[in-house]
Computed example of a mutant assay.
Amino acid sequence: MMFRFFSAAALFVAACLPAQAFETRATAAWVYDVTTHTVLMDKNGEASLPPASMSKLMTVNMLFEALKDGRIAMDTTFGVSAHAVSFTEAGGSTMYLQQGDRPTVEDLIKGIIINSGNDACVVVAEGLSGTEAAFSEQMTERGKALGLEHSNFVNASGWPAPGHRMSMKDLGLLSVRLIEEFPELYTVFGETDFNYKNRAPANSRNRNPLLALNIGADGLKTGHTQEAGFGMVGSVKQGERRIVFAISGMTSDTERAEEAERIATWAFRQFALKTVVKAGAQVAQAAVFMGEADTIGLVPAEDVKLLIPALAQDGLQAQVVYTGPLEAPIAKGTEVAQLVITVPGLPEHRVGLLAETDVPKGGFMKRLTTAALKLRAEYIGTPAS
């Protein structure tokens, strides 16, 4: 018979109090530590909201994927339609394209990311899919495939439209994808100025308020419409850690800038990255059935790093969980258990534990002894008739 074993003796570190509570002024917010895959804050994070220009990140993703697939190159040029130019005439953010222009893909990437150009988004949509409507459908379909569960795209730019929605969680997850899947292209998010053909009178600068603060900010996108308020998706890297956050519903660009900096400061100052178990360090032993050895060491494959709230006082909660005894033979490096660690105020953290050594199946005498012990245990445990 197999049993589920729990051991709390595997790890002894101080238990922690939750990080000091953070009350954000945003109506919806999602804050994520990319390094440890930890959600630090979730306030209405799954609510589908008008994302304004923040949804341009999905247009950028589609463009980056086309580059990665080889369908286009950085020097590929696209035509500019009257439909694209109409967004400049309507007064939205723009890279000041005109009919007859042939911007390159590189121009358009900068025009979307740095200038937040609605015209650039339409050019990309039409260049990749023929029409903006077809591109929007493809964005929605691709978003679902990427796990964006609360997103629906009606256009390429985030222009106010019924049904055009994203959640802060989806924006955060999409941002992590852009950072991790396209590291060379992602660097454009940190650039501060782009002026296509020197046409921009005053607003050619990147609107990200964190880029000038020297705090490690390198992306991603702001957004604003009357319905959505002022929002932002940001990323900041300090040392080994990177955080991504998405906020919405701020009342002004000043409040947005202040809240973005407050969130970044809180995420780095209220949590410390600690190595709680080294790779290959034995954290427990598991019982083995019918093997040459009666126990086997359990070790993590990599360093176990956790975010520890700054106000730490007593002890982390840790358990080793496995279904056992483990039946021989067991190959070294096989995952046979999990280390489950909980920190108050943060999600549960699970780490696979591997067999530290090989355990061959026991020989004839070992199997005979084990069978005899099992029979004796069953005999002793049989109630009298």
Rank of each mutant, 00 (worst) to 15 (best):
F12V: 12
Y196D: 01
I247V: 14
L346R: 06
K169Y: 07
A200D: 10
K221I: 08
A14Q: 11
R350V: 14
P344A: 14
G130Q: 11
A264Y: 02
A66K: 10
P325W: 04
L306G: 07
G219K: 08
I112K: 03
E327V: 12
Q226N: 14
R25M: 02
F182M: 03
T225S: 15
F87A: 05
D69C: 04
A217G: 05
R350C: 04
V321I: 14
E227W: 00
H349D: 00
L97H: 10
L211F: 11
L67R: 06
V343S: 03
A212I: 12
A29P: 01
R262E: 09
G92Y: 12
T225F: 07
V176I: 13
L311P: 00
M41I: 12
A281N: 10
T342R: 14
A9G: 15
S81P: 08
S151K: 05
W30V: 04
R207M: 13
S81H: 11
T131N: 09
E259P: 03
L63N: 08
S136M: 06
I330T: 04
G70C: 12
M74P: 01
A133T: 13
A10Y: 00
M250P: 00
A328Y: 01
E181Q: 15
V283E: 07
T369Y: 09
K110P: 00
K110D: 02
G163M: 04
N203S: 13
A284K: 01
L17N: 11
F289T: 03
V340P: 00
R269W: 00
D314N: 09
T140R: 09
F87V: 07
L57W: 01
